[in-house]
C-alpha cells in the first residue's frame, strides 16, 4: 500500500444507492466485504434515500434539492461517504453545490460533503492506497468505463489496476470502452430505440473482445448491458466490479482480527 500522510479513515458511511439496494443487494454485500477486508468499518445510515439524480436529470430542480438536503442531513457528519456507483457519486460531487448557488452557506456545506464523498474504487485506490487485491478469480473481463466515472469523476485506471492484480483474472481490452452504453437514465426510456442501438454497439464490442464478463463501476450501465445480453440469449455476463473483488477476497483465509459479526455473509436467494 502507498504511504499516505493523512490518517486512513477507519469508518465510512455507506451510501448504497437505489439500484444496489433494490436490484443488486449483492453488490452492497460485496462492498462491505471488500471494505472490511481492508480494515474499514462501515456504517449504513438507514435514513438514506435517493441522491435525486432522476429528478435532477429530468429538469426538476426543486425536487432534486429536496433529495440533496435530505442526503446532507443523513451524511454531513460522516467522516467519509462511499458508494458503489460513480453516477450517484457524480451527482453529489458535481451537481449538489451548484443547486444551491443562490445560498452560499448551503452551497459551502455541499462542497464540503463533495470533498469527502467517494466512489468505491476512488476510495480504495486514492484514499486507502490499495494497489492489489489478494485471492483469485478465474476468468476474463472486459472493462466498460461508465461515463460518469470516466468523464464525471476521472476514474480510469484505478479499478482496472485492482482487477488486473487478481490472480487468474485476465483483463481484455474492450474497443470503445469509453463510449456510452446508451443507458442515460431517462434517455433509455424517452428514446428507447436510440438507447438500444447504442447498447448494441457495446454488446458487439464486448462479444468481439472475447471476454466472458463485462464489468464496470455502475449498476445502471450493468443493468442496461446485462439486460441486453440476457434478451439476446448471450452466455456472457455483466457484473459489478466489486463483486469480482469480493469473490477473489473470499478465497483468502479469514483474518484473525475480524470478529464473526464484522464479517459479512452472503445471503442466498
Amino acid at each position: 500500500m502507498a504511504e499516505t500522510t493523512a490518517p486512513r479513515p477507519r469508518r465510512v458511511a455507506l451510501f448504497i444507492t437505489c439500484l444496489v439496494d433494490f436490484l443488486f443487494p449483492r453488490v452492497g454485500e460485496a462492498t462491505l466485504e471488500v471494505l472490511h477486508h481492508f480494515g474499514v468499518e462501515v456504517d449504513f445510515p438507514e435514513a438514506q434515500t435517493c441522491c435525486g439524480q432522476p429528478a435532477f436529470n429530468a429538469g426538476h430542480r426543486p425536487q432534486a434539492r429536496t433529495a440533496a438536503l435530505h442526503f446532507l442531513a443523513v451524511f454531513e457528519d460522516a467522516e467519509v461517504v462511499v458508494a458503489p456507483s460513480a453516477s450517484c457519486v457524480a451527482m453529489v460531487v458535481e451537481h449538489y453545490a451548484p443547486l444551491f448557488d443562490d445560498h452560499p452557506p448551503t452551497a459551502q456545506r455541499f462542497a464540503a460533503l463533495a470533498a469527502k464523498t467517494f466512489e468505491l474504487s476512488q476510495f480504495l485506490t486514492e484514499v486507502l492506497g490499495v494497489e492489489s487485491i489478494p485471492g483469485r478469480w478465474d476468468g476474463s473481463v472486459a472493462w466498460h468505463h461508465s461515463c460518469h466515472g470516466l468523464r464525471g469523476l476521472g476514474i480510469a485506471e484505478g479499478p482496472q489496476t485492482l482487477l488486473r492484480s487478481i490472480e487468474g483474472l485476465e483483463l481484455r481490452p474492450l474497443p470503445g470502452a469509453e463510449v456510452c452504453c446508451g443507458f442515460g437514465g431517462l434517455f433509455s426510456v424517452k428514446f428507447p430505440r436510440l438507447s438500444t442501438d447504442m447498447l448494441q454497439e457495446k454488446i458487439d464490442a464486448f462479444e468481439a473482445s472475447g471476454a466472458e464478463c463485462l464489468s464496470a463501476t455502475d449498476g445502471s450501465c450493468l443493468m442496461h448491458i446485462g439486460g441486453g445480453l440476457e434478451r439476446q440469449g448471450s452466455a456472457k455476463t455483466a457484473q459489478h466490479w466489486v463483486e469480482i473483488l469480493a469473490s477473489a477476497i473470499a478465497q483468502v483465509p479469514p483474518r484473525q482480527d475480524l470478529t464473526r459479526q464484522d464479517r459479512p455473509r452472503l445471503e442466498s436467494d
Partner: peptide, 9 residues
C-alpha cells in the same frame, strides 16, 4: 435537451 445520454464526450 433530452436527446443525450449525458455521456459528456
Amino acid at each position: 435537451a433530452h436527446a443525450s445520454s449525458l455521456c459528456g464526450r
